[in-house]
Computed example of a mutant assay.
Amino acid sequence: MSLDTTLDTNTEDLIAEARRQVEICNACRYCEGFCSVFPAMTRQKAFADGDITQLANLCHNCRGCYYSCQYTPPHEFALNLPAALAEVRQDSWERLVRPRRLARLFHTHGVALALGLVVGFALMFLAVSTMPPEDGEGFYAYLSHVAMVAIFLPAFVLPLVVAGVAVRDYWREIGAPRPAWRDFTVAMDRGARLKNLSGGQGQGCNFEREDRYTDARRWAHQAVMYGFLLCFASTSVATLMHYLLGMEAPYGPLALPKLLGVPGGILLTGGALWLAALKLRADPDLGAKRVWGGEMAFVLLLAFVAASGLALYWAGGTAALGTLLALHLGSVLVLFLLMPFTKMIHPMIRMAALVAEASQARRKAEGIGREPLAQT
Rank of each mutant, 00 (worst) to 15 (best):
G199A: 12
G191D: 15
Y170G: 05
G246W: 12
H221S: 14
G270P: 02
L267E: 11
D211Y: 06
D8C: 00
A326M: 15
F38L: 01
T42N: 11
L337K: 02
F207C: 07
V119T: 07
W292V: 03
L373P: 00
L197H: 14
T323N: 09
L14F: 02
V146D: 09
V161F: 10
L123D: 05
E371W: 04
L327A: 15
S308R: 04
A216L: 11
L275T: 06
R63S: 06
R100Y: 08
R168I: 14
E371G: 02
R95Q: 08
L113N: 00
S308A: 15
Y66G: 06
A361G: 05
I174Y: 03
R178I: 07
Y313L: 09
T318W: 13
T130P: 04
L79D: 05
S236L: 15
G322R: 15
L240R: 04
G164Q: 13
D215R: 12
A319K: 07
A18L: 03
A361C: 03
F121W: 02
A155S: 15
L194Q: 15
L275S: 05
Y30E: 03
G164I: 13
N196W: 14
D285N: 04
V157C: 12
A297D: 07
D4H: 00
R20A: 02
L324Y: 12
H109V: 00
T9W: 00
L335W: 03
L373Y: 02
M351H: 14
V165T: 11
A358T: 10
G317T: 07
F106E: 00
R182H: 07
D91T: 01
G199F: 11
V167A: 15
E32V: 05
R43V: 01
V157R: 10
D13K: 04
Q203I: 14
Y30S: 02
Q203Y: 14
S36G: 06
Y251E: 04
R190E: 15
R362D: 09
M241G: 05
F152D: 08
D4N: 00
S68R: 06
D189V: 13
H109S: 03
S308F: 08
D8A: 00
I368N: 00
A127S: 12
L337G: 08
A238T: 06
A352W: 03
N206L: 03
E210C: 07
L256S: 13
P372R: 06
Y142G: 03
H109W: 00
A255N: 14
R100L: 08
A166Y: 10
Y243D: 12
A86C: 02
C28V: 13
L55E: 03
R101D: 11
K258R: 13
L302W: 02
R63T: 08
P39L: 02
G287M: 09
L256I: 15
A288C: 12
H75Q: 10
P257Y: 11
G271H: 00
R168P: 08
T185W: 04
G317W: 04
V37Q: 01
D215E: 15
A16S: 12
F304Y: 12
E76M: 06
A315C: 04
E295H: 10
V111C: 03
R218G: 11
D189K: 14
L7C: 02
D8M: 00
T108Y: 01
M41S: 04
A311Y: 11
P257F: 11
L96C: 02
